[in-house]
């Protein structure tokens, strides 16, 4: 017996908390992947990353409205179309922002941080003016509702499973693009030695732009996935931005594996502790631990010892 629970019940609760943590983990990973590309590869701090995510969420919401009104027959698969559109929207906005702002600031990371914060304020107010301050939620297609019963206590919602599956697919895709494709090699070449990469014929400006766009596009997909587990509002993105930055920094900025591992650690720690104490205290403890560890090991968990 633990507290008022039997051991069986207790493990089930732990498992359910663990699963709740896994969904949080998925959102963290999807958001952090985009950030890890932009921050880890380009050294750019994008404070408006959350707003790119919310753009994806709004696109998904409007798709769901559109399909249920005009194409109810295709409603069961609208989500995949919405996701593609969300990617395109965020990708496009990302390209625009890189062209109009980021490219002038590559040598001034702190200034990028401030400028993108300004961008995030503008986007938030834009969403509020255009879409309203009210939070909106999507209608899920029939097949995503319901839950799988593993035991009579443990229930796993299907939309959660779907988000997790999606996370795995996108992570693998990002890995392949960044580390197994010729284009990924170009990106890494530019980041390691811009002048040399330019000298061997890589269009470094184009690489910058596409990389930034890609990071933003992934945020759009994250937003799309986010609609399935939470509602969307103009300021929802800001709630996650600091957590996500901590995830990326904690994992060691340039390491994909590190990002995933740290997203896992942080989300699991938080959701497990939430069971034992209030949500806010769980968050305080998690963040404090992360900040504490970062003070002891500022380079993050997974980094190489590099010759200077």
């Amino acid at each position: 017996m633990i507290g008022d629970y039997t051991i069986g019940e207790f493990t089930s609760i732990l498992a359910m908390q663990g699963f709740a943590g896994l969904i949080l983990f998925s959102v963290f990973v999807l958001m952090a992947l985009g950030l890890a590309i932009i921050f880890g590869q380009m050294g750019v701090i994008n404070m408006a990353h959350g707003e790119f995510m919310i753009l994806g969420a709004y696109v998904t919401y409007f798709c769901s409205q559109f399909f249920s009104a005009y194409l109810p027959g295709l409603f069961s698969i609208y989500f995949f179309i919405a996701m593609a559109l969300a990617f395109c929207a965020s990708f496009g906005l990302g390209i625009l922002v890189e062209w109009g702002m980021i490219r002038f600031l590559y040598k001034r990371p702190l200034d990028t941080l401030l400028a993108t914060w300004g961008l995030s304020l503008i986007l938030q107010q834009f969403y509020r003016s255009v879409f309203g301050a009210r939070e909106v939620g999507v209608t899920l297609p029939e097949w995503m509702l319901g839950a799988v019963n593993l035991t009579d206590i443990i229930e796993i919602p299907i939309n959660g499973l779907f988000v997790m599956g999606l996370t795995i697919i996108i992570t693998v895709a990002v890995y392949l693009i960044m580390f197994r494709s010729g284009w990924g090699k170009q990106v890494r070449a530019v980041m390691q030695n811009r002048v040399m990469a330019g000298a061997v014929g890589i269009n470094t400006k184009m690489v910058d732009r596409i990389t930034f766009g890609l990071g933003c596009g992934i945020a759009g997909i994250a937003g799309s996935a986010f609609t399935m587990i939470g509602s969307t509002g103009p300021t929802a993105g800001q709630l996650y931005i600091v957590d996500t930055f901590l995830v990326v920094v904690f994992g060691g900025a340039a390491s994909l594996l590190g990002t995933i591992a740290s997203a896992f650690t942080i989300s699991q720690a938080q959701s497990t502790m939430e069971f034992f104490m209030s949500g806010s205290m769980a968050k305080v403890l998690t963040l404090l631990t992360v900040v504490g560890i970062l003070m002891l090991r500022p380079q993050g968990l997974f980094t190489l010892n590099i010759r200077r």
Partner: peptide, 29 residues
């Protein structure tokens, strides 16, 4: 903790931001 370990720049900015978040949550909680 930070400067002795040569943490600076954007890392410092993000960590101080996290500390601001932590203190707010703590006060409200």
């Amino acid at each position: 903790a930070m400067f002795k370990r040569r943490v600076g720049g954007v890392y410092f900015a993000i960590i101080t931001q996290a500390i601001a978040a932590i203190l707010t949550i703590l006060i409200i909680g």
